[in-house]
Amino acid sequence: MEIRELEQERQIRDAFPVMKQLRNHLDEEAYVALVKEAKEKDMYRLFGLFKGEEIVAVTGFKPMITLYYGRFVWVCDLVVREDKRSLGYGEKLLSFVHQWAKEEGYEKAALSSGLQRENAHCFYEQKMNYDRVSFVFKKDLKR
């Protein structure tokens, strides 16, 4: 297993079938455009966990600074290919994010998870020792 940053457009596209399992509202073109813009404007980083040359998990995150959390990494996306779940890939990839954050001087990691994703909540709280600290609210400004 190897974790590699996905920087070139071809690499970003190669990760789409895995990312689509989490972000199923996006088509490939919208996904690529958003990744490119986030990388350019928001310090977004995209990594894939490879087994051989096959991408089995993907994470996207960005370093941030807020008054609430201080210096931290926000995990925007974390998804393991559906047929490869519960094999330790999510733990390996999220542990990589934690190590990256520590090495870069960030003090915390944070993320949000959809209310319906109860298995993910168990993973974050029980396996990865995350604390449930808040609700996340959003408002669609197009309405």
Results as ranks from 00 to 15, higher is better:
residue 29 E to N: 13
residue 63 P to V: 07
residue 43 M to P: 00
residue 32 V to I: 06
residue 27 D to I: 02
residue 33 A to P: 01
residue 25 H to S: 13
residue 43 M to D: 15
residue 51 K to N: 12
residue 73 V to L: 05
residue 46 L to N: 10
residue 38 A to W: 07
residue 37 E to Q: 15
residue 38 A to P: 01
residue 44 Y to N: 03
residue 26 L to T: 10
residue 42 D to F: 14
residue 46 L to P: 08
residue 32 V to Y: 09
residue 40 E to Q: 11
residue 79 V to Y: 00
residue 52 G to Y: 10
residue 69 Y to T: 05
residue 48 G to Y: 01
residue 58 V to S: 04
residue 28 E to I: 08
residue 38 A to G: 12
residue 52 G to M: 07
residue 67 L to C: 15
residue 66 T to P: 06
residue 25 H to Q: 09
residue 74 W to G: 06
residue 72 F to K: 03
residue 56 V to Y: 01
residue 50 F to Y: 10
residue 77 D to V: 08
residue 41 K to L: 11
residue 25 H to I: 00
residue 42 D to Y: 10
residue 32 V to K: 14
residue 27 D to H: 12
residue 55 I to A: 09
residue 35 V to W: 00
residue 27 D to T: 09
residue 35 V to C: 10
residue 70 G to Y: 10
residue 29 E to Q: 14
residue 29 E to W: 04
residue 65 I to D: 11
residue 43 M to T: 12
residue 79 V to K: 02
residue 26 L to Y: 11
residue 78 L to C: 05
residue 31 Y to S: 09
residue 51 K to I: 00
residue 41 K to N: 12
residue 49 L to N: 05
residue 57 A to T: 00
residue 36 K to H: 08
residue 37 E to G: 15
residue 52 G to C: 11
residue 44 Y to C: 04
residue 48 G to D: 01
residue 79 V to A: 06
residue 65 I to V: 12
residue 39 K to I: 00
residue 50 F to C: 06
residue 60 G to N: 04
residue 57 A to K: 03
residue 75 V to Y: 02
residue 73 V to Q: 09
residue 77 D to N: 14
residue 24 N to D: 13
residue 77 D to L: 04
residue 27 D to E: 09
residue 26 L to N: 09
residue 68 Y to H: 15
residue 54 E to I: 05
residue 75 V to N: 12
residue 69 Y to P: 00
residue 25 H to M: 03
residue 68 Y to L: 01
residue 38 A to R: 10
residue 78 L to T: 02
residue 44 Y to V: 04
residue 34 L to F: 00
residue 26 L to K: 08
residue 66 T to E: 10
residue 26 L to P: 00
residue 40 E to P: 00
residue 78 L to M: 05
residue 37 E to H: 14
residue 46 L to W: 04
residue 61 F to H: 03
residue 37 E to K: 15
residue 66 T to D: 13
residue 61 F to A: 12
residue 52 G to V: 03
residue 37 E to S: 15
residue 70 G to E: 08
residue 55 I to D: 05
residue 52 G to Q: 08
residue 69 Y to G: 15
residue 74 W to N: 11
residue 35 V to M: 09
residue 77 D to S: 14
residue 54 E to K: 13
residue 37 E to I: 01
residue 24 N to L: 02
residue 65 I to Y: 12
residue 43 M to W: 07
residue 40 E to H: 07
residue 57 A to C: 07
residue 36 K to I: 09
residue 69 Y to M: 01
residue 60 G to T: 04
residue 73 V to P: 03
residue 35 V to G: 09
residue 74 W to S: 12
residue 39 K to P: 00
residue 45 R to M: 02
residue 73 V to D: 02
residue 24 N to I: 03
residue 36 K to M: 11
residue 40 E to S: 15
residue 53 E to W: 01
residue 79 V to F: 01
residue 24 N to V: 06
